[in-house]
Design a protein around this nucleic acid. Structure first.
Lengths: 366, 366
DNA sequence: TTGAAAGCGATACCAC
DNA sequence: GTGGTATCGCTTTCAA
């Protein structure tokens, strides 16, 4: 059915080994045999059988990616970055979604290991990664954690600077003239705790206190973020002194919070300035375009892929590498309080959306 | 290094063949040996070596998916649907993005074929699929086109009923009391032409004419949709009689159109009722939540996956199958003209979003 | 019901 | 430079 090296060897009356060597650019081959083999291979549209090659080399030329959700724009961006980076190396990307289920994630890890992927890139939903780590390390497959890290783990990691995300957002709210800045927290994993720490650090640096109740728990996962943002904001609105600025763990959370504010008949940014994180594509489309912290998801993916390719080649997997990408503030209407927010710390990375056709005008109907 | 059937066999003092049979639910095995094998396999976290299995069966247990873009929510949904469906069958999904580039798409097809995927699912960006079709059919790999079809091709196809999408949207605008309904067209491939036809059909059925200029070209691809929606809408606003309802090829196009309307100081839905297509996640978050036609992307993926699995098993691939999924109208603020739009044709599939915390109230600040 | 033997298509190692 | 041989982990066939 399909062409094998055996066929080429027979046609040319050389051995299979010779053909194999030519096809892998082995040096011990005379120029003329090499030419003959290559010619015949092309004629027959020869394609190596990856299963056979894999079986003997132990390599599959595949990289596995496990994400909590394919639909989440952040992970889609990451996947895109990885895909782009490995394309030219001849590697294929096997993507699976854990559907936000830690149990399923473990299964998928096993599955990909069985597939003999040469490296694994994982944005984990697990609370503790130890078990999976052992499994992976037993097989000696290089793996890279992405987005979510585990403090107790020595592992390769590529992620955003969550602490800095929190600090940047909070700092911005301070500069916008907010005096009572609250935080709707994310899950208590590295992303959530980092942002929380950054939030506290920024306040502290400006001598601001966090009144009780100002740090309110939001989502514990990635799926219910909007609903829990709504609930969290309701709690915040009941506090006295009422917050006038809110840093939300991520954009979906912020969307929920904004809904709560509107439902209460209050306004953004006048009553509450809002900053999210993630800088999702829809941020600029919202009723009040949402200021957010960009975490350069795609380049995060690229870095992870580059690291993966490096690890596959190097035999030295001892010292885990950590890559932290700097966040970037994107200012939109949701935090433009009387224009004062335009002041941006010199040196800070910040970008303003052109407000050209912002969807933030009063509506003519309902 | 990793657990093999040999290890289980040794531990249990049975032959490798016996283990193999148990693991594949072969019948000629005594219940007790089966139990012992399964137990030990679980204990050792046995996972079959797919390369080895592949080598002898000639199957790779991989399905290849090529999409124009990973970030586009529609394709992300489709991927999710496929992923979900094939998970239990032990198949893996190799996903690659063509980055909206027909040339790259062809390369990726070659690449996946070389990988010996057992089936290929393709949402093509190519204008003519003939070349790729030949390549794929030479290898005798079953393939399924998704979303975009080619009228001149006999191929398996799973997609939305584009004609019906156009008709449903237009019909809805008519029922909302619009008298001058325009259409911002999509690219002139099956999705775009189908929706255009449906639009015309619905108007015709109601004895409405399409004045010159009412069908205006929008995007030619998938990337510039928003910008071209903006431009198209500007043209529409200049027409006399001015349209009072616009069916946009897809949601990004609609978003662009909405921006143009707001920038012109006009209102939605009072001046223009708008309906998009795709029902993307952000539709309900927009300034004026956008009515849209849902094309059940995830179940589209599931159907494609199911078809793929079926084709892999069946030896009869002669008669291509076509699966068309019915669209569903989702009514939101952008087409709620004085409440009259609530009238829904009996029998038509339609859903209304709960307007509970709609982001559609006048804002307190710019 | 069980298992020995023969591959699947490629690569690695080591003679020649 | 070239090629014989063993091998990778599994399935298939067929004999016991």
């Amino acid at each position: 059915m399909s062409v094998r090296m055996k066929d080429i060897a027979r046609d040319l009356k050389v051995s299979i080994v010779t053909v194999s060597k030519v096809l892998r650019n082995h040096s011990d081959i005379s120029p003329e045999t090499r030419a003959r083999v290559l010619k015949r291979a092309r004629e027959l549209h020869y394609q190596p059988n990856w299963a056979a090659r894999s079986l003997v080399t132990g390599r599959s030329y595949m990289i596995g990616l496990i994400v909590p959700s394919l639909v989440h724009p952040f992970f889609a961006e990451v996947a895109r970055g990885i895909s782009k980076k490995i394309r030219r190396s001849g590697y294929s990307l096997v993507i699976t979604s854990a559907e936000e289920d830690p149990k399923l994630e473990q299964q998928e890890i096993e599955h990909l290991l069985a597939r003999q992927v040469d490296a694994l890139i994982i944005a984990s939903t697990q609370l503790s990664f130890g078990e999976s780590q052992r499994r992976i390390e037993t097989r000696n497959v290089p793996y890279i954690l992405v987005d979510r890290n585990f403090s107790d783990l020595r592992a390769n990691y590529v992620g955003a600077d969550n602490d800095e995300i929190g600090a940047l957002a909070t700092q911005h709210l301070i500069e916008c003239g907010c005096h009572h800045i609250a935080h709707i927290c994310g899950p208590m994993i590295s992303t959530g705790t980092g942002r929380l720490k950054g939030y506290r650090r920024a306040l502290e640096r400006h001598g601001l206190k966090v009144p009780p109740g100002y740090e309110v728990a939001g989502s514990s996962g990635d799926d219910d973020a909007e609903a829990s943002g709504y609930e969290a904001m309701r709690k915040l609105m009941a506090l006295r002194p009422r917050p006038d600025g809110v840093f939300c763990f991520n954009d979906p959370t912020a969307v929920g919070a904004m809904k709560a504010i509107f439902d209460a008949g209050l306004g953004i940014p006048d009553d509450f300035a809002i900053v999210g994180a993630g800088n999702f594509g829809y941020d600029s489309l919202l009723c009040v375009p949402l200021s957010s912290i960009d975490q350069s998801s795609a380049s995060l993916g690229e870095r992870a892929a580059k690291l993966a390719l490096g690890l596959i080649d190097s035999k030295d997997r001892s010292r885990p590498r950590t890559i932290i990408l700097p966040p970037r503030l994107v200012v939109r209407e949701s935090s433009r309080k009387g224009g004062s927010c335009n002041a941006v710390e010199p040196g800070a990375t910040s970008t303003k959306d052109s407000p050209s056709h912002a969807l933030s005008r009063p509506l003519s109907a309902p």
